[in-house]
Simulated assay, not measured.
Amino acid sequence: MASRIRVLAVVGLLLLAGCTGMGGSGDASEAQGGGDGAQMSGGDGSSQPVEADAGASDEAGESIQAGDAAADRAIIRNGRMVIEVENYSTTADAIAARARTTGGYVSDSNRELHRDGNETWYTGYIVVRVPSEEYEPTQSMVSKQGTVRSEETTTNDVTDKLVDLEARLTNLRERRDRLRTFYEQANSTEELLRIEEELSSVQSDIERLEAQKRSLEQRVAYSTLRVEIREPAPEPSAQQVPYHERSLVAAFLSSATDVYVFTRGLLVTAASLAPWLVALAVPVVGGRRLLRNRSLPLLGRRGGSESGTEGGGNGSDDPQRESTAAPDTESPDDQT
């Protein structure tokens, strides 16, 4: 009996010790859990700036990558601007000088003069090609020259086309190298001719694709800007008054102006024709005098011959007249 009591007492002490250990471990775990929670909360509070910095760095990295990707793209840019300025020549010269300063050039230009009565004004355009990095600064410079009426820019991404051309060129060059190797190893004339013909075709394709690639690269490297320049046109004149409603003074002055213009036109015409008339009159007058001098001796000879013939005729007629007159005068004597 006593032994059973001892055994039960030992078991009760063990159970009590076990419960006490479990309670201590639970408190310790709670304390540790609280410490962990505090550590975690503290970690979260301190990690927020870290995560923000990481996000900012990621965004910066993405923007840099996007910028690099955009810089790696082959883009052709063409622009058109319409501006109104006070002086066409000054603006066109300034744009051309800007293009040359930036390493570009003027590819085309045109200017047209308009006239309305006494008013004149110019319109036209100038096309410049500038390096791609100078396209936007050139646009800004042009916009400062006058009033911008319209502005547009078109882009064409030819990156894929350039990549395709480069891949085709690589394949064609490799094929050309193989053909050259086969050409050196050929043993018959027929085989040499066949390889040479194929090699010539491949070389032609390479040159054609290289020309296309150079053209695209040139268009990518230099952007095109067409600037249409317009001077302000004069304001339209007042509506004309019908002719029958015009004042007498205005009609008289208009008529006098027309007479003056007509007279002045005649004088100007006469002045312009005077040298020609003098130049033409000299040979005409000289020719007439020459012909007159040659005809005078002939006229003298003809006059002498005619007078001689007339004198002979008169001498033969006089005796007849005297003979016929004599009987008439003597008839009275005979009668006496």
Rank of each mutant, 00 (worst) to 15 (best):
E207R: 01
N187Q: 13
T154S: 06
Q145K: 01
N171V: 11
V50H: 07
L209Y: 12
A270Y: 07
A251M: 14
P137K: 03
L266M: 13
T170D: 10
P275H: 11
S331C: 07
A238D: 09
P234V: 12
D108Y: 03
R149F: 11
L280G: 11
Q218H: 11
V220C: 04
A250C: 00
A281P: 03
L169M: 05
D36I: 15
T224N: 03
T329D: 13
A167C: 08
A96C: 07
P297G: 03
S247D: 07
T91Q: 00
R115N: 05
S255H: 14
G42A: 10
E198R: 02
A69Q: 13
A256K: 00
D328F: 13
S46V: 04
G21H: 15
R219G: 06
S215R: 01
G23T: 08
V11H: 02
D328G: 10
L277W: 11
E84F: 02
P137G: 07
M22Y: 13
C19H: 07
E119W: 09
G67I: 00
A270E: 06
G103M: 01
T120V: 13
P332Y: 09
Q185D: 11
A221V: 10
G311F: 05
V10T: 15
E151D: 14
A9H: 10
T20D: 15
Q240F: 11
E151H: 00
L296H: 08
P327H: 15
S247I: 04
W276S: 03
E119S: 15
A238V: 04
M81E: 10
R264Y: 00
S201E: 15
R226V: 15
R73V: 00
V106N: 07
A38T: 06
A17W: 15
R230I: 01
G146P: 01
S29P: 05
V127R: 08
D328S: 14
A2T: 10
E86I: 05
V142A: 06
R100P: 05
T324Q: 03
S295V: 08
G312H: 04
L162K: 01
G24T: 12
A2G: 10
M22E: 11
T170Q: 10
E30A: 06
V241D: 07
A186K: 08
R175T: 07
A279W: 06
G26N: 15
A71S: 11
E151F: 04
E151Q: 11
A92I: 08
L273W: 10
R301F: 02
G34W: 02
L13D: 00
S200G: 12
A256P: 01
Y260V: 09
S307G: 09
L192H: 04
I206R: 06
S140F: 04
A256G: 06
T257Y: 00
T329N: 13
E330W: 05
R100Q: 13
S247R: 02
D44K: 09
T263A: 15
E62Q: 12
N293W: 08
R180H: 14
